[in-house]
Write a protein that binds this DNA or RNA. Structure first.
Lengths: 379, 379
DNA sequence: TCCCATTTCGGAACCGGTTCCATGGCATGC
DNA sequence: GCATGCCATGGAACCGGTTCCGAAATGGGA
């Protein structure tokens, strides 16, 4: 009934009495079953008894052991979250949505940060083979085929956020359409030489959002009857520094340089803008820019972008997991979230017909000249 | 030995045979103890036997159940991470450090996102009372006194990151000194009217970093023999919008307006800069700005700041937790991390004597004119 | 050949809740 | 008064690894 003996260094035996459910039951003069029922809020217990048990629990400062409960119940009430490079703001936002929903549902959120292939494999096998969680939510990651097969065979609940896989619940966007929208936006402003700056990190372990957006870019060009110029297409690591370097190269093409650039993420768009400034090009007059994701920074820097519901994707994904674990079938198994272009100063420039007061052009080493819609910012 | 029966809807009984350690033992012709030893890498097992057991495990596709192991071992191998508003980039960076170290140590990182007092209490009691984790890491949060008492009494390992508490391991910075350094930097540039923009969110549940930095600000003024002007001190929510509004009010003081502003975080500094531009003030000539934290955005926008090792704080904090759980005493129980001023364009302006080529001043609605040290960005 | 130390191994007891079945008490219906 | 049914309850069996003790096998030395 909870007496553990341990011999320390050949000295006297040390008793470490643990207060378990049996102790509580004995102390309250009831059976263990009753205590368990009280703990789990069963309505099968008399009110007077319940109160007596509760007060005993209080008095003994009894705290039920989660792992014992998990063992009996056959579930951990925890969900594993596999997350690709967590530091990316877009990934972060999704993660927050996931965590909030899970914790509201009383589920533990066990986060696994995946930064390389080896780590990915290690985490996957740890999750799958050690049965430490009831389900898996994968954010912006592409799970290797053999793992998917195994997960499917074992019947482990899996939900994908920002990716999709046949026969699994998922929440995703149409990146091709998004790339198309962004490019069309630039084309609609009259640009004919539109560049593309993307990242190449999907090769590692993520989903190839950038490549999908590139496909959309090509489609938009084709629809406009424009022959793609592959000198205006470049890919590199997912950093603004890399994007700046790639863009810089395009700006050195002289009269063949792009007059507008679609960066496959806002982070890259920042680099594009840096490069433009480096070359003395005015934005958007000399070069229009649009990004993707609608991160905080794009709003701060007044960068046009394609908005996708990041937080919401996490919320919806986690909700599907909760339904799955509760045995309810998530009705719309697969869910595509809407996208929309957010036109800002980096493509539109100052809208002269905007009646609100605009910021003047400021000189100086820092000219973070932000075009705000109206005065709300400094209200 | 692992046969579970369940009656479904009054239909036939369904047998769900589970493959447990006993099955493996029987199948391999050994005892359960041996299988367990193999699983845990004990060296008390003959090589031939080990191989036989491993192949049986492989053949049966046996996966040990984490919660059973936890129950016997008396530990969960999981650590709870309490995190204040996770979306803040500074908090995020610390979290990443923590998660990486924990997962390297084979510990699960269970993340609890705390956004309000009620959530905080709920998560705390869930963690403490349900014994779901072996230890707690608290990031940028101030734990209520009564909870601390309880944690201490129960002997739950607790590590604080970006905060400190007597007799608990912690990793922190000297915010007072940081505020002092930032303000001194501005004073050293000749400014006498230095404003302070801080946040007031510590009242809720976080640590009062902003207030500590304010104290440092006051000390620096005093050391310079400057009487503080409380018209130049303002606090609001932790958003650049709020900071912009507060700053704007200061700029309307006419000749009494500040010529330099210390913002207690980079996020706020962005708002300060927005407000300056709104008022047609050049930075840093008309108003110098320094922030705090050295976030990505401050580097992108060339904002002077005070650097603190964010990722490192997480790494060190988690390492302390690992030591604690391993029974090793974390030697330097409390650890203060170093701070340093990172002077950038928002306070220094263009350094004319810098030999590297500088970006020209660009006109246009977006003049994200970033002063880079050298060409490495567009290399 | 016998003795003792070492290595390897089997398996019962145990970790601490959960669940299900048996039981007792009480009210209702005939 | 007795059968019936429901509610509340006790407690044994169970969940599936871990650990420890005792024992068997092995090997080396006298």
């Amino acid at each position: 009934m909870g007496i553990r003996c341990r011999i320390l260094w050949g000295e006297v035996a040390v008793r470490k009495p643990t207060i378990g459910i049996a102790t509580v039951a004995a102390e309250a003069g009831v059976g263990v079953g009753t205590v368990s029922r009280v703990l789990n809020g069963s309505n099968q217990v008399n009110e007077a008894t319940r109160i007596r048990v509760l007060s005993t629990i209080e008095r003994l400062d009894y705290r039920p052991l989660r792992s014992a409960s998990s063992l009996s119940k056959g579930r951990t009430d925890a969900v594993g979250i596999l997350v690709s490079v967590i530091t990316r703001p877009s990934v972060m936002a999704r993660l927050v949505g996931v965590i909030d929903v899970l914790s509201d549902a009383g589920l533990d959120a066990v986060v696994f940060n995946v930064e390389n292939r080896a780590q990915f494999e290690r985490h996957l096998s740890s999750i799958i083979d050690q049965r430490r969680v009831d389900g898996i939510i994968s954010i912006s990651l592409r799970i290797p085929e053999e793992r998917v097969t195994r997960i499917r065979k074992l019947g482990i609940p899996l939900v994908l956020v920002d990716n999709s896989l046949p026969n699994f619940p998922c929440v995703y966007i149409d990146d091709v359409a998004g790339g198309n929208m962004a490019t069309k936006h630039l084309l609609s402003l009259g640009h004919r030489r539109v560049g593309f700056i993307g990242d190449n990190e999907h090769t590692a372990l993520g989903k190839s959002s950038s490549e999908d957006r590139y496909v959309g870019y090509l489609m938009a060009l084709e629809a406009a009857g424009i022959e793609p110029d592959f000198d205006l297409v470049a890919r590199g690591p997912h950093t603004s520094e890399a994007a700046a370097a790639l863009t810089s190269a395009q700006f050195e093409l002289g009269q063949h340089r792009p007059t507008a650039i679609f960066a496959s993420s806002d982070t890259l768009a920042v680099g594009v803008i840096k490069a433009a400034q480096h070359h003395g090009l005015k934005i958007p007059d000399d070069c229009a820019v649009i990004g993707f994701d609608n991160l905080d920074i794009s709003s701060i820097l007044d960068i046009s972008t394609v908005n996708q519901p990041l937080l919401e994707s996490g919320i919806k994904g986690a909700s599907k997991m909760v339904s799955l674990l509760n045995g309810e079938i998530a009705k719309p198994h697969r869910e595509e979230l809407p996208l929309d272009v957010v036109p800002r100063g980096s493509s539109l420039g100052i809208q002269r017909n905007n009646s609100t007061k605009l910021y003047g052009v400021v000189e100086g080493p820092i000219g973070l000249q932000i075009l705000q819609r109206g005065e709300e910012l400094v209200s």
